[in-house]
Design a protein around this nucleic acid. Sequence first.
DNA 1: CTTCATTCGGAAACGGACTCCGTTTCCACT
DNA 2: AGTGGAAACGGAGTCCGTTTCCGAATGAAG
Lengths: 180, 180
Amino acid sequence: MSTKPRADAERNRTRVVDAARALFVERGDDVQMPEIARAAGVGVGTVYRHFPDRQALVEAAAEHRFAEIEEYARARCFGESSGLERYLRFVGELLSRDRGLTAAIDSARGRPGSEPRGTARERLETVVAEIIAHDQAAGLLRSDCTVADVYLLVGALSSVIRKGGDWARFLDLLRDQLST
Amino acid sequence: MSTKPRADAERNRTRVVDAARALFVERGDDVQMPEIARAAGVGVGTVYRHFPDRQALVEAAAEHRFAEIEEYARARCFGESSGLERYLRFVGELLSRDRGLTAAIDSARGRPGSEPRGTARERLETVVAEIIAHDQAAGLLRSDCTVADVYLLVGALSSVIRKGGDWARFLDLLRDQLST
DNA sequence: CTTCATTCGGAAACGGACTCCGTTTCCACT
DNA sequence: AGTGGAAACGGAGTCCGTTTCCGAATGAAG
C-alpha cells in the first residue's frame, strides 16, 4: 500500500508525539501547536504533515493510555468482585492524572466514524466485552449491560473529571444506585 | 446603586438575548458573535456592551430555562414516586431539545465562582434541596445525597447528551444500579 | 555524486472573539 | 421644546490561535 516512510520522518513523528504527551498530561487541551512544535524541535508545518489537525494529535498522544488500560484490565479485572467496577475506577484514576486523556475522550465522540479507531482501542473494546461477560456470568452485573453502556459511562466520567467534579463520588452514585 | 438604564439600551439587550436564544437552541454553542449581532439588528460592539464575553451571553440566553425547570419541579416533583427521578428526566428532555442549554451547563462549571449565579438558578437550587429532602423523607433516596450530587449528575447528563449518547439509558443505569 | 521524491520550516493566510473610538441617541434640566 | 453631555451604538481593527503553502533541505536509489 504505502512505500516505507523516510527515516527522519518517522523520527520526527515520534518526537512530536512525545512532546505532545508531555505537555498534554499537565495542561490538557490548551497547549498551542507552535509550542508543541518548538518542544519537539520541529516546525509547525512538520506537525501538520504528520497529523491532519490538532485533534488527531491529541488522540495520537493518548493512544498509549489505551494500551495501558487494556493491560490493567486483562491483569486485574477478572477476579471475584466486579471487574467493571475495578475498570471504571482505574480509568478514573488515569483520567484524573492525565488531562490529555480526557481531552482525547471528550472529543473522540461525536463525529464521523470516530468510535474505536486505532488498534489499541479496538483491542480494548474486546477486553471490555470480556469483562462484561465475566461479571454477568458471576451475577455481578445486569444482564443487558453492553460495551456501549461502558463507553457512555466513561464519557460521563471524563466530563465529570474535566469539570473538576468528585469522580469517586460519581462512581459511588452509579454503583450504589440512587435510591436507598 | 445603579441609575436606571436607558430605554434603547434595554431594548437592544433583549433583542440580543432573543436572537441568541433562537440561534443557540438549534446550533448550540457554534454560532458566531457577528451572526448573533446581525440577527439582533445591532453591531457586535453592542453585544459586548451588554455581555462581557460570549460565555455570559450563552448563560443569559439559557436563563429562562432555569425558571422553566423550577416551575416544573415545584409542580410535579413532590408526589409519591421519586421526585428526583422526574426531575432528572425532565432536565434530560429539555437538554436534548435545546443545545443552548447544554452549552450553558457544560461551561458554567469550572471557573471562578460560577456555581449558581443568576436569581433563577438560586431559586432552582432551593427547590432541588426540597426535592431531595422530600424524597429522603419518603425513603426513596439515599440519605447522604446532596445538591452537589445533583449538579454532578446534571453535568454528566448534559455531556452525554452533547455527545449524542442515549441519555435515557444513562438515567436507567443510574437508577437501576449497575450491579444486578 | 547526481537525481528527485519526500520532508522540513516557518512566514503568511485565515477565522473568530474581543476592543476601541468617532458618531449617534436619549433624557434631564432649563 | 431646546440643548448639553452622558450613555449607547456600530463596525473596522486587533489579537491570538490554527492551518496552509511553498521554496529550501535532506535522504534514498542508481
